[in-house]
């Protein structure tokens, strides 16, 4: 596993642990909501899932 990546996961987890949810959730939602709405069609999505 990429050491830099796990270091960031740990950094962010400590930020979440040490701060109230209304602070980290605003930042987290930028990542979460960036994938919606999706322009994928059902057929494209199911094909992608099968290939994955």
């Amino acid at each position: 596993m990429d050491a830099e990546r796990i270091a960031f996961v740990e950094f962010w987890a400590r930020f979440v642990r040490d701060n109230p949810p209304w602070i980290w959730s605003k930042q987290q939602n930028i990542v979460i909501d960036s994938q919606f709405p999706s322009t994928l069609t059902r057929e494209q999505y199911l094909r992608m899932k099968r290939e994955f």
Binding site: P21, W22, W24, S25, Q28, N29, I32, D33, F36
Partner: peptide
Amino acid sequence: KLDRELSELD
């Protein structure tokens, strides 16, 4: 209890 800004996923 968890009070947070909700995402589209939530």
